[in-house]
Amino acid sequence: MASETQNAADAAASAPGMPQLDFSTFGNQIFWLMVTLVVIYFVLSRIALPRIAAVLAERQGTITNDLSAAEDLKVKAGEAEEAYNKALADARAEAQTIIAEAKAEIQTDLDEAMAKADAEIAAKLAESESKIAEIREGAMESVKDVAKDTAKELVAAMGGKADARSVTAAVNARMKG
């Protein structure tokens, strides 16, 4: 190795200056450069670049598809939410009407029952009042009779002769007073 590099160094020394300007190697370099470039060009343009372009396009397509699918799902979710809200609102409204109906029904039932009860109460009251009046009348009569009898007995006990008519008149006058 050392002797080889020594030879090379000697060769360089014998041809001083830059090895880049050694024109005897130009043909060789240019030939192999052209071979290299042609090989790279064909490998890239025939295999590598179309493949990478396809991969990138496919990836872009996948991303676009995924994004649009996500967008669709989002719209669907929004629709579902809307439908749910609508169903909820409908159910609420229905419940409200049912409640109102029930309330109204109950109210009418209640009113009916109240009216019936009121009527019964009024009837009972009237009956009771008439009975009370009867009783009161009866009681008045009895009081009169008792007073007359008592007055007669009292008069007889005092030794007088009780005149029925005057006793009655007296009792009546007293009762009025």
Binding site: E4, T5, N7, A9, A12, T25, N28, L33, T36
Partner: peptide, 28 residues
């Protein structure tokens, strides 16, 4: 500048048009 000398990869002959040199090796 010795590192830039173009020499044949095999043998010690002159650098011809189609000689495989160190430059050829690194292009490959």
């Amino acid at each position: 500048m010795d590192q830039f000398i173009i020499k044949p990869l095999f043998g010690d002959g002159p650098v011809g048009m189609f000689t495989i040199t160190n430059s050829t090796l690194w292009m490959a």
